[in-house]
């Protein structure tokens, strides 16, 4: 079984975000595989170990993203593809187009991705990719069973569990709880250096800039306003209610 895993390198969740000149500062920041994508990698390796086949990890991102791919290879993936040509960078629309172009050049039975990236949290790229490829998708999985061509997927539906049947080829996205990702072992780390990692460019994928031009634009990047102290209302209950309603209308303008 050929399994493709789409992953993204993101800030370590413990890193603090610093904005400098309107951009998020990356100096000295520790990067990791997006935690949801880590579940995807783990699931792919387990399936491969059970059913045989090959796991290929794919990312669109700058050169540093190679580290994330190497980590996935050290966990046990077989091969990696890095789209680090800056011409391939854009928004979710762009990423899905680029990934689709990469995927179309390959054989696959199953694509696994994280449900969302912890940095921008759009949750769009994987499902857009399924759309681009014209295959079905099931999102936010907490359990995945593959029997021949048939797939039974348990998904987290806003707190409820839905059990969905589907058939391959299929794209699924991983939710927390799908599995417990392994740490790359030392032997895995040593082997990772010898596994194939291919870099692809705009030209390699036969794409033009117009095909993948971003459909969105970031106009401003800012941190959430610091939390201010709360206010405790006192006095007669009726007065408190009045005061609260007026504050909601005027101070925070949460009700019109």
């Amino acid at each position: 079984m050929n399994i493709l895993v789409c992953l993204k390198q993101t800030f370590d969740t413990e890193e603090r975000i610093v904005i400098e000149n309107g951009k998020i500062k990356e100096d000295g920041v520790k990067f990791v595989i997006n935690p949801y994508d880590e579940y995807a990698v783990e699931e792919a390796i387990r399936l491969r170990d059970d059913l045989g086949g090959q796991v290929t990890v794919i990312t669109v991102g700058p050169e540093r993203a190679e580290e994330a791919l190497r980590t996935a290879l050290a966990m046990g993936a077989d091969e990696a593809i890095l789209a680090d040509d800056p011409a391939l960078f854009g928004d979710e629309y762009t990423a899905a187009k680029v990934l689709a172009a990469i995927v179309k050049q390959r054989e696959f039975d199953l694509i696994i991705a994280g449900n969302q990236a912890v940095d921008d949290g759009s949750g769009q790229v994987a499902v857009r990719l399924a759309e681009e490829l014209g295959i079905p998708h099931v999102s936010t999985l907490t359990k995945l069973e593959v029997n021949g061509n048939q797939v039974v997927a348990h998904r987290d539906a806003e707190g409820d569990e839905e059990i969905v049947e589907a058939s391959l080829p299929l794209l699924v996205t991983a939710q927390q709880g799908l599995n417990e990702p392994r740490y790359p072992s030392l032997i895995g780390i040593r082997k990772a250096n010898k596994k194939p990692l291919t870099k692809v460019t705009l030209a390699d994928l036969g794409l033009s800039l117009e095909d993948i031009e971003a459909r969105t634009e970031i106009t401003e990047t800012f941190l959430p306003a610091p939390k201010t102290a709360g206010q405790i209302l006192s006095g007669d209950l009726a007065d408190q209610v009045k005061e609260l309603v007026s504050a909601l209308k005027t101070k925070d303008k949460v009700v019109g």
């Binding site: 580290e67 190497r70 980590t71 790359p184 030392l186 780390i189 990772a192």
Partner: peptide, 17 residues
């Protein structure tokens, strides 16, 4: 090297986890 860093990271994850 990258390999050194990955080995350190695995140790860190093992210890923290």
């Amino acid at each position: 090297s990258k390999e050194h860093q990955m080995i350190a990271e695995t140790t860190r994850q093992f210890v923290e986890g």
